[in-house]
Design a protein around this nucleic acid. Sequence first.
DNA 1: ACAGTTTCCCGTAAATGC
DNA 2: TGCATTTACGGGAAACTG
Lengths: 392, 392
Amino acid sequence: VDLFRNLMKSSFVVERQPCMPMHPDRPLVIKTGVQFTNKVRLLVKFPELNYQLKIKVSFTVRYFKKRFNILGTNTKVMNMEESNNGSLSAEFKHLVSYRAHRASLIVTEELHLITFETEVYHQGLKIDLETHSLPVVVISNICQMPNAWASILWYNMLTNHQKNVNFFTKPPVGTWDQVAEVLSWQFSSTTKRGLTIEQLTTLAEKLLGPCVNYSGCQITWAKFCKENMAGKGFSFWVWLDNIIDLVKKYILALWNEGYIMGFISKERERAILSPKPPGTFLLRFSESSKEGGITFTWVEKDISGKTQMQSVEPYTKQQLNSMSFADIIMGYKIMDATNILVSPLVYLYPDIPKDEAFGKYCRPEAAPEPEMGGDSSTIQPYLKTKFICVTP
Amino acid sequence: VDLFRNLMKSSFVVERQPCMPMHPDRPLVIKTGVQFTNKVRLLVKFPELNYQLKIKVSFTVRYFKKRFNILGTNTKVMNMEESNNGSLSAEFKHLVSYRAHRASLIVTEELHLITFETEVYHQGLKIDLETHSLPVVVISNICQMPNAWASILWYNMLTNHQKNVNFFTKPPVGTWDQVAEVLSWQFSSTTKRGLTIEQLTTLAEKLLGPCVNYSGCQITWAKFCKENMAGKGFSFWVWLDNIIDLVKKYILALWNEGYIMGFISKERERAILSPKPPGTFLLRFSESSKEGGITFTWVEKDISGKTQMQSVEPYTKQQLNSMSFADIIMGYKIMDATNILVSPLVYLYPDIPKDEAFGKYCRPEAAPEPEMGGDSSTIQPYLKTKFICVTP
DNA sequence: ACAGTTTCCCGTAAATGC
DNA sequence: TGCATTTACGGGAAACTG
């Protein structure tokens, strides 16, 4: 009988069918009221098992904070799987809803198992088979996703247990090396570019303070996700996850090109920009904006000829909604004393002419407007306007 | 028995409890999956009726396109109503869901009745009481609201029938006078200002073409809501409703002040602006934008000294999301040949200085930025930036 | 009162139905 | 196939609840 215990394995995939999955890259987080699928497959192929098996699915509730209802039926019949030469699989697609109870852990640290049960009769013997998913986190609003996903990351980074739902009662520490790999993967799995050593070092400094070599340094779960950063109203992970979101939704192309240095300390920024000609600039993320912001810093000479760094107030999703970052960069102007507009941005660090880097990502120049402002004899066609970003 | 037939009356109110109602001003439109309430009240007060009455609620489906399920129980017990000296009332709060069937009318023209039944025993006689709501429209997505609401408007504008669910199989025509009143009410009921005679005349011209006196002119349902306007890809009502939405969500204060002329023909615009000094401008809605747009038109003299009208491409919700219209007006600049920025807007028609009209609705000038760009010795604090709208 | 958590529901996009 | 209609679910905000 034990022989069968591990035959059935749950390959858990969140698919959010049939709508486009918003977080195909964030499995193991389930939102109430949102569909998910979980395939179960019997991994051995016995001719005599090729009949229909009833699978029962249920949530294992450990902390008793929640009680789940799987909407619709929670039993399914396994079918012959086309792709898989005769082995059996069943797919569940359910919703969950729940009710709060008292519990010691916060909801995004609560781990749950989805269990599957079936009975197999083999050589006259009745065998109860049972398997379960990896621990999942259940959230009720998408705003809980960042913390929920952090839990999944931390769990899978630090344990190979299949069902340690008590993990977060005493979450183990991770090393910087582990964390760095996970962080880079957050970028490389959803964009065409992971994090460079320089970028990772900047992040290490945020988490651990200045240090010569971060390898082997320990990072607590609290530091990673629960405590606010010094002087900030948000945790390291929340800050970073909002930047990941910003990158994916607003500046993906620029990120993929490698135009965004992003994570760079002020000191290093100064060090690399100082020797460069005025007008050289780089793009980096805001350190103070919880929701994710991006800004540019450029070199200029002040009246006395001294080299200075200037940055603009970071742009957030709100602003990037109405204007792309490439357009902002290309259009950014400073108004000088005589009311004339000048662009302080010339070369993207190290020396790429601005147009060359960003021109292709800009909105093409306004085509002639089809709608006329009115009677063409005296009223002109509508004037095209452009939002531009200026500093007085 | 007939005496009782009309005693029970349904006062239909959409409340969408407990969330803030988004359309408290649009009753009689129900969205599937969204709560609504419908109070029923027994209008007579008999001491012997002060016991608990069971009320059964159901949808009357006329065209058989849909089948409704009222989620939860569809019977309720009437309770003594506090406010209403001893009369009885019950409140239903349900969801609906449905399934499509074949039907001749489009979904937003399908009228449904919510019926309520109960039994009363009076002087040993059993009396069946029944009442119903006014006809309601059921939609499945909020994007159907404009057309659904148009149906409710047209119905209640043109009939006093309590249950003519066949109304839209042959919808009657309305007169301009009726339509004008309804249109103005769409503004006055949700803002502090209805439509002026001038504004209404512009709208009449859109619906009926040029005419000396619109009073008594007939407007068909098709003209109002079903046919696209000449050369446009949308109906009159859809265009207007999007403007109403724009007004409510983005430029309410300016509308309430009466700063927005809004509906004005190009000819009249020219006529009233021409005699005014250059820099005089007015605000009007875009005629070509389905989603609702607003622009400004100003007077200027060209090189030869000839008076000209200029308008900018209309601003839509998208742009107004990141910048208020007052800010756009105050910041709007034209770039002249020498790269200098000048504002062509000086006086709001007839002669209100721009600052006086819009200054109080602008974002206050940037306060000193709390976040520093970095090391204060060489890196300056973040530079404040402003989006401004310019025409090259 | 308050913070963690859930519910509500619009609005966009995709899927479905006819 | 194309259009009408529905479903799906993120995201902001309100409501709930211990």
